[in-house]
Amino acid sequence: MTVLDLKATEQIATREAFGDEIVELGRNNKNILVVDADIGSSCKTTKFMNEFPKQHINVGIAEQNAAGLAAGLATTGKIPFVSTYAVFGSLRMAEQIRQEICYPNLNVKIACSHGGLTPANDGGSHQAIEDMGVLRTIPNMTVIMGADYYSTRKLVKQASEMHGAVYLRFTRDKVPVIYDENETFEIGKAKQLRNGKDVALIANGDTVHLALQAAEILESKGVSAQLLDMHTIKPIDKEAVLECIEIGNIVTVEDHNIINGLGSAVSEIVAEQGKGKVRRIGVQDRFGESAPYDKLLEINGITVENIVNTAEEML
């Protein structure tokens, strides 16, 4: 596969990918609905609303109702995408998702902007660092975060085509485009960006480009790094993780609490295999704060430098 030159590429927030893709989906399937909870302009659903007003519902600032109402719509054959911020979509709506969407196994998608530390200047109240972990523990739920604009569009489309609850997490802030627009993605199947034999880097979402840069630096230092974009953390691609276990050293990277996110999901497989070592890079079980996005990543060690150092320490 081709990975674009990061220095030459543009930067686009993945919430834009959702906003663009949902319009395509809504045009082709009148059962695709968007359920907004007031913040549509921020979640990039305005284009959809303008183009398909009959497929657009706005419940106002009432996320719990958004989830329950979407469940009711799904029982009538609709495919509702509930759109809000990740903090609200995972936590304010958590029990409604559990009781009325996942327990009855209904076809509702939860599409959330402001994932991880990406609403950087909004501060800790709006930075969702627990969302994927919370939702990962609910049966019948699929949990996804695309790495860039094009992968996110593809994954949103695939989510619309599968039955069941899917949590889709997007960035508020801009992230580099790393994939060619013709690249293909499959929910539940890791994207292998590099082959390697010394260390395996497993990243997702807005950290994939950091891991990619780290892999290149490692290469220049004579360390061969495998690199996976684990866009789906549930169901996780166990086969791909098993391959990494054969390499022996695994570094996970995520813009999420190191508790119960990608690193935990990988560690569960590693622990059950009884071999392989894992080091987790991610939010250090601390709330965020208002700061430039890069600063927040740095505070938590979610940096190219730390990925390189961590990988080297394991060798």
């Binding site: 719990q64 109702n65 109402l69 469940a71 009711g72």
Partner: peptide, 16 residues
């Protein structure tokens, strides 16, 4: 929670 679901069902009926 049930009333929200009922609203969604009723809305689905109206849309169709």
């Amino acid at each position: 929670q049930g009333l929200s679901c009922a609203v969604g069902m009723a809305l689905g009926g109206k849309l169709d």
